Simulated scan of single mutants.
Amino acid sequence: MAGSIQKIGKKFRVTKELGKSQSGKRLREYVYAATEAEAKKLLAEFEYNQQRNTLVESSNITVSEFFDHWMENYVKYNCEETTAYGYRNILYKHVEPYLGRIKLQKLQPTHIQQYYKYLMDEKGLSPNTVRKHHANIRKALDYGLKQQFVYRNVADAVSLPRLNKFEGRAYTKDQLNTLLELVKDTKLELPVYLSAYLGLRRSEITGLTWKEGVDMQNRILHIEKVRTSAGKAVVIKKPKTDKSQRTLFIVDVIYELLRKTQVNQAEYKKILGKDYNDSGYVFTREDGTPYRVNTVTEQFSDFLKKHKLPKIRLHDLRHTFASILHSEGVDLKSISEALGHSDIGTTNKIYTHIFDKTHKDTLSTMSKALRKNKEKRSSNV
């Protein structure tokens, strides 16, 4: 028999028969379950894997050593640097100090459950951040399952904290016009206008180049590269999805702003000479050096505070872009394509909270229809 179940106190012990050692000693492994149903499930999984010859042999590898193996043999070759940086940040700064010394095959759902409790109660992390940790751990253990380091993914049995839904804010037309007036002829004019008028992301603005991204003759912007960061390293890559790679018409106000930017850069290049860094980027410092990716976000926050404007993120100008277009009757599909979303469902999910929650236009249509019908009936009498 592959194993057995025995009730001990209030828990159920599952005994896994692993065979015999070279000396003839029986090898066993014990795990505990809170309920008999869970114990039966554990035993059934063990027997299934044993029958399929996929049972993992006992190993001394720790959780920490396994994560190192996963990073070196999977993440290194299959993930972008920004993704790999996120994994390293979570695993090495948070997960390993708490779970790293546990033997991988001894890792249980309760270990992970207590880790999530620790993150919220001791570290003060949000449920959303805890879910990111969970996604990371679960993905790594899925790899371990496929490579037969473990015979089940224990992260699947963990209960997650309720997700706190984040809702971005949007400026009204009046608030946006005020911002656009105040930001003129400042360092923030270009990124704010590109975000407000075209719905560009921060990474798209900082990654925009004159040669590949701007076609002044045909008045087209090509969004084909983004510039982001992974820790202190700057990463230049393609946008996350194919739909994010898009072409956008350069409206008059943006055309004039780009022309002004070209003139300014030419003047600085003439003044600084060899000290000018001709980086080719559209959004740069006076010496031509592209801004640090996070700088524009920090400057935007300081600007709003200085001018006592309602606090929003730079990214919320995309929300404003979507909200105003929707209020002007632009259909959701067109808004989605302009924003570079993968599908219309993404747009609806992200921005539904800033659209008209009272359904004024929809419900008013019903009233108008009945009123017209009533007037028509009256005229026929």
Rank of each mutant, 00 (worst) to 15 (best):
L18V: 06
L18W: 06
C79V: 09
I61E: 09
I61Q: 12
T15N: 04
K25T: 09
K10F: 00
K16V: 10
V31E: 13
N73D: 05
T15S: 04
T83K: 10
K11Y: 03
E57C: 08
E65M: 06
C79W: 00
N89K: 07
Q50G: 05
E65D: 03
K11F: 03
S59H: 11
K10N: 14
E36P: 03
R52N: 07
N89G: 09
A39I: 02
T35S: 15
F12L: 10
K40F: 09
R28T: 15
V56Y: 00
Y92A: 03
F66Q: 01
H69P: 08
T62P: 09
R28Q: 15
V75N: 10
S64W: 06
E29V: 12
Q50N: 10
E65G: 01
F46D: 05
M71D: 14
N60E: 13
N73Q: 03
F67P: 04
K76M: 11
S64C: 10
W70S: 03
K40G: 12
I61C: 08
G24R: 09
A44C: 05
A39M: 07
S21R: 12
F66V: 02
G9W: 02
V31K: 12
D68Y: 04
V31I: 15
F67V: 08
E45D: 14
E29F: 11
